[in-house]
């Protein structure tokens, strides 16, 4: 009896009540535009409790006050890093990459002056698989890559994901959809089934920390011709989707394209964009 009591006291149980979950959910939504459904409760609680333990808070209330009023905002960023899902792999939704090289790049060039750089933004880029896939696809499957400068900017809200992206080391699962010859040509095998992307390709993507819902971050994101924004808006509610859509609109040159995830539709969010149906994919275009 005494022994078990001591054991309980030495490792205090931390719980997040329903009301505390609601508080956190509302706050997190207000700050990021990401809303957790009730089905995500376990996922959210687990991560909140993990952070409380790490920073030495035994209750939600004091921890939440710490998050809310910390001037640096570092702890909130830690939570964002933990709460955002980073599942991705090379050549995911490859039909859109095909569309990029088969149709979009040609249209983009048609409206550019000779020698002008084409700019592509991958958001959210997570651990880098998407922007590197774009780079690989352009190098291997776009026959005009030697004639044109292409700049690839990749951003994510998660600074840890960005560090991994810059490091360019990927698991076996992450590269499993790549053709073996591409794997051989651009990656160096490492122990444990990992693969390191070659330096040249890693240097071809400019990774930046950007919160799509924060105007301070997005105001510098301009003059893009193609934006990959896949499987992000689906986590936003209507108001946040509209704001994000306007941000993407502002970031594009006239005639520029946005590619969303397969389950997402810009038409349900805003009428700012024109729907374009290409052979490989449906894409949204900022009017010329």
């Amino acid at each position: 009896m005494g022994h078990s009591g001591v054991a309980r006291e030495s490792v205090p149980e931390i719980r997040v009540t329903d009301a505390e979950f609601e508080r956190f959910r509302d706050y997190f939504y207000r700050k990021t535009g990401i809303r957790f459904e009730d089905s995500k409760r376990y996922f959210v609680d687990k991560r909140l409790i993990q952070r409380m333990r790490q920073v030495g808070h035994e209750g939600f209330r004091e921890y939440f006050a710490f998050v809310r009023f910390q001037a640096s905002g570092k702890e909130f960023q830690e939570l964002v890093n933990l709460m955002t899902v980073n599942e991705t792999y090379f050549f995911r939704e490859e039909y859109q990459l095909k569309c990029m090289v088969n149709a979009l790049m040609g249209e983009v060039l048609h409206h550019k002056r000779s020698g002008e750089t084409v700019r592509i933004w991958s958001v959210p880029c997570s651990t880098g698989e998407e922007p590197y896939s774009i780079a690989l696809y352009l190098l291997e499957f776009w026959d005009r890559i030697d004639e044109v400068d292409v700049e690839i900017v990749a951003s994510d809200i998660d600074t840890q994901a960005l560090e991994k992206a810059r490091a360019g080391v990927f698991s076996r699962r992450s590269v499993s959809h790549l053709p073996p010859w591409i794997l051989k040509k651009y990656f160096e095998p490492l122990a444990g089934g990992y693969h390191r992307l070659c330096d040249d390709l890693r240097a071809s993507v400019d990774f930046r920390r950007v919160n799509l819902c924060d105007p301070r971050d997005t105001r510098g994101m301009r003059d893009f011709d193609v934006i990959f924004c896949r499987n992000l808006l689906i986590y936003f509610d209507e108001a946040s989707q509209r704001r994000a859509a306007e941000t993407l609109y502002d970031a594009l040159n006239p005639g520029g394209f946005v590619l969303l995830g397969h389950s997402e539709s810009m038409s349900r969010i805003t009428s700012l964009f024109k729907v374009r149906r290409f052979e490989d994919a449906i894409v949204y275009q900022k009017p010329l």
């Binding site: 020698g115 352009l138 400068d149 390709l201 071809s204 400019d206």
Partner: peptide, 17 residues
């Protein structure tokens, strides 16, 4: 021509206007 490298991004931000 080709993919612009990160260092080049910094040296010459792509705003050719």
């Amino acid at each position: 021509m080709g993919l612009v490298k990160r260092a080049e991004h910094r040296a010459a931000p792509s705003r050719p206007h």
